[in-house]
């Protein structure tokens, strides 16, 4: 066997590919499902928290800041293990899927809140004054004047952060969520071959390369923000 044949046999073995591609596809489907759920719920929650914070109530802001700090400081895997293994002892049984979704939502919400808040702060005070002087209320000013401008400035960092957190769906493997990486490692141990892992890697590339590329383009388009 030549070196090349051995390489192909280890990482791209056709028989293994044929046998396991349905598993990989179903894993990819689960990964997409969690990813979309996390993106929608995480960003909405983050935006809601940022809006809440802009009202400037001390009693509400302190918990928001603590929440954001906590979720920025703790590895998501730690939170996943606490919820997944701790809650059943209290009689609360959540599926791995649910735990993964909850934890990633909270993490994304924390980062999104911070990014939106920075965006809101970056809108000049004069915009608030102009809008208020025409009789728009606080909430109306936020929705029609401030947030549209803030969002433009947050698009690039938010995209990058969202990609990073969405990739954490792979952590579902640790708690038995049948997502892509989990399917691949399971298949790998049955097939005693690295091909399923390579398939998963390629699936991740197909899924994320376009988003990474889009994030790069957005970053370039909004690069003036830094100056």
């Amino acid at each position: 066997m030549t070196r090349f044949d051995r390489f192909i046999d280890t990482f791209f073995k056709p028989e293994v590919m044929q046998q396991y591609w349905p598993d990989i596809v179903s894993g990819l489907f689960v990964t997409c499902q969690i990813a979309i759920l996390v993106i929608v719920s995480g960003i909405s929650l983050g935006l809601a928290l940022a809006i809440l914070r802009s009202y400037g109530f001390k009693v509400i802001n302190l918990p928001i800041v603590i929440f954001v700090d906590l979720l920025r400081a703790l590895p998501p895997l730690v939170l996943i293990l606490i919820l997944y293994f701790g809650l059943p002892n209290l009689g609360i049984n959540l599926s791995g899927f649910l735990v993964l979704w909850m934890v990633l939502t909270l993490v994304l919400a924390a980062f999104a809140e911070e990014i939106f808040w920075a965006g809101i702060l970056s809108v000049p005070e004069g915009q608030w004054q102009a809008a208020r002087s025409t009789g728009l209320g606080r909430f109306q000013t936020l929705i029609y004047v401030v947030i549209p401008q803030a969002v433009r400035m947050t698009v690039a960092p938010l995209t990058n952060r969202t990609i990073a957190i969405t990739k954490n769906t792979a952590l579902g493997m640790v708690i038995g969520v049948p997502e892509l990486l989990n399917q691949a490692t399971t298949a790998q141990s049955f097939a005693a071959n690295a091909t399923p892992l390579m398939m998963a890697t390629i699936a991740y590339l197909i899924l994320f390369i376009p988003v990474v590329y889009a994030g790069r383009r957005l970053e370039k388009a909004y690069a003036w923000r830094r100056h």
């Binding site: 990482f11 990609i163 990739k167 954490n168 769906t169 792979a170 952590l171 493997m173 892509l180 990486l181 691949a184 490692t185 790998q188 690295a194 892992l197 390579m198 998963a200 890697t201 991740y204 590339l205 899924l207 994320f208 390369i209 988003v211 990474v212």
Partner: peptide, 15 residues
């Protein structure tokens, strides 16, 4: 940047 860090780690340690 597109591969989840855990997938990369598993690829290297188990693949």
């Amino acid at each position: 940047r597109a591969i989840p860090p855990l997938a990369l780690l598993i690829m290297i340690s188990a693949g």
